[in-house]
C-alpha cells in the first residue's frame, strides 16, 4: 500500500493566525521563513512569514501524511497563493474576526481565491466562538453557502487541530461527492 499525501494550503490576510494553525498540528518543526516585521506591520506582530510556512503530520504506523503550506499574509505575496493553490487538496482561508481593518483586504483575497479554485475551501474565522457570526463574516467577505465556515481560537492548539479536522472532513465530503457524481 503506497502512502497517501494530503496537502493543505493555509492562506489569509496578515496576522490572521495561519502560522499558529500549522504549528498546532505539525509533528515536525515548522519550517518557518519568518523575519522581523518592519514599518506599520511591526505594531501588529514581531515576526512575519515572507516565503511560506511548512508543517507536516504523519499518521502513526501508517504512511499517510499531511502537508500544510502557509502563505505570507501581506498582499504583495499574494502571487504565492495563486501558485500553491494549484497543487493542493484543500484550502483553508484564515481571517481574524476582531481585526476588522483587515476584512476589506481579506474579502479581496478570498474572492480572488475562490474565483478559480477547484478544490474545497474552508473559512476559519479566528478569535470567534459564534458560528452564526463567523458565517456572517465569511459571507460578507464573499464566501458562498457551499463553503464551510469554522469559528476558532487559534491561539489554542486544540482549536487549531479541530480546524484541521474540519478541513479534512470537508475534503472527505468533497471526495465522496465527486465519487458519487462520477458514478
Amino acid at each position: 500500500m503506497s502512502g497517501q499525501t494530503f496537502k493543505i494550503l493555509v492562506t489569509g490576510p496578515f496576522a490572521a493566525g495561519k502560522t499558529s494553525m500549522i504549528q498546532a498540528v505539525s509533528q515536525t518543526q515548522v519550517i518557518s521563513t519568518d523575519v522581523t516585521t518592519s514599518g506599520d506591520e511591526r505594531d501588529v506582530k514581531s515576526f512575519t512569514t515572507v516565503a511560506m510556512d511548512f508543517g507536516t503530520y504523519r499518521v502513526e504506523g501508517d504512511d499517510t501524511r499531511m502537508l500544510l503550506f502557509g502563505t505570507p499574509g501581506q498582499a504583495r505575496f499574494r502571487f504565492m497563493t495563486n501558485i500553491l493553490k494549484g497543487d493542493v487538496d484543500v484550502v483553508a482561508f484564515v481571517v481574524d474576526a476582531e481585526a476588522t481593518d483587515t476584512h476589506a483586504v481579506a474579502g479581496v483575497e478570498l474572492r480572488a481565491l475562490l474565483r478559480d479554485l477547484r478544490v474545497p475551501a474552508v473559512i476559519a474565522v479566528n478569535r470567534c466562538d459564534d458560528v452564526d457570526a463567523a458565517r456572517r463574516l465569511a459571507r460578507s467577505l464573499g464566501a458562498l453557502d457551499s463553503e464551510a465556515v469554522v469559528p476558532c481560537q487559534l491561539i489554542d492548539p486544540d482549536s487549531g487541530r479541530k480546524v484541521v479536522v474540519e478541513i479534512l472532513l470537508t475534503l472527505l465530503a468533497s471526495m465522496e461527492t465527486t465519487k458519487t457524481e462520477v458514478a
Partner: peptide, 10 residues
C-alpha cells in the same frame, strides 16, 4: 487514508 488521518487527529 483520509479517514485514518482524521481519526488520528481526533
Amino acid at each position: 487514508a483520509l479517514k485514518r488521518l482524521i481519526g488520528s487527529l481526533r
